[in-house]
Design a protein around this nucleic acid. Structure first.
Length: 276
DNA sequence: CGGCTTTGACCAGCGC
DNA sequence: GCGCTGGTCAAAGCCG
């Protein structure tokens, strides 16, 4: 049983050195490059390759209003969760380069890391793939997102009683990784962080299963993005809203949705929403 | 038997 | 320089 009910956006990276104004990133004021939203997102995940499919845009339609991207990092904007499951997202696009040469850098990292355990130090700092994270209210840690993932590690993280799990896309040439952890403040919320871009179609998209056409399953859309797509049909239209989620570090994220229809309240205590 | 998970160990980056 | 923490590897075990 997998159930996701709410989504919110949050900045999981508020502590990182690359924190940036989330408001600017998730400003859905409705003007600007409407197309950037879906495309940027797809690019981020590598979904934009050659397998763009209608469902992707179908998803975009779920979004109340187009994203306005004013940040330089905008292109990696995680758009809104295409699915009801996705409650919030935050992009940690550090730089364009990371996106352009993602694969190469990944390989470099690997080589630097344990492929040669010898203390060969290079001066290169660890380059990170553009990342984005979102929170999902779910009972299960590992959300179905249309791609196949293999768990390669689990670590207890500081300031959290819940371990963080590390997953890697099982596709051989795909370097996408994701981390999954439960919110320390609300154990019912799963925080998923994607890193990298898929360079292949979702395996599940090509499968005629999942009860129905991809257009309706929600999985299809999410799959393209590599985002968790739980089949939450009934909540589908309920979970994207403008929301600011306060974090433990005191920061908050502005999901940028024009209005809040109250779904947020399902996930976030009303008092939290008022705090701004 | 292949694929996946678990888990301890290792390494790099960062702050003090 | 040292310790802490996050991230990854890889051997071992599990499961279908």
């Amino acid at each position: 049983m997998e159930r996701n009910e709410g989504l919110k956006m949050e900045d999981m990276f508020g502590n990182s050195a690359n924190s940036f104004p989330f408001q600017s990133i998730f400003d859905f004021s409705g003007e600007g490059d409407n197309n950037k939203f879906p495309l940027g997102f797809m690019e981020l995940l590598g979904a934009a390759h050659d397998f763009t499919s209608p469902p992707l845009f179908d998803v975009a339609q779920q979004v109340p209003s187009p994203l306005k991207i004013d940040s330089p990092d905008a292109f990696n904007l995680p758009a809104t969760p295409n699915s009801p499951s996705v409650s919030s997202a935050s992009s940690e696009a550090v730089n364009d380069e990371a996106v352009k040469v993602d694969g190469q850098k990944q390989d470099q990292q690997k080589n630097k890391k344990q492929l040669n355990l010898k203390p060969k130090k290079t001066n290169q700092k660890r380059q990170r793939e553009p990342r984005f994270a979102f929170m999902t209210k779910s009972e299960v840690d590992h959300l179905e997102d249309g791609y196949r993932w293999r768990k390669y590690g689990q670590k207890a993280v500081k300031n959290s009683t819940f371990p963080r799990s590390y997953y890697r896309c099982t596709s051989t040439s795909c370097n996408v990784k994701k981390r999954v952890e439960r919110s320390f403040t609300d154990p019912s919320i799963v925080v998923t962080t994607y890193e990298g871009q898929h360079n292949h179609p979702s395996p599940l998209m090509s499968r005629p299963s999942h009860g129905g056409s991809p257009l309706n399953s929600g999985i299809s859309a999410g799959a393209a993005f590599g985002m968790p797509m739980q089949r939450a049909e009934s909540h589908f239209y309920h979970h994207h809203h403008h929301q600011q989620v306060p974090f433990s570090n005191g920061s908050s994220i502005n999901a940028g949705f024009p209005h809040d229809h109250g779904l947020l309240q399902d996930i976030i205590p009303s008092h939290m929403l008022k705090e701004e």
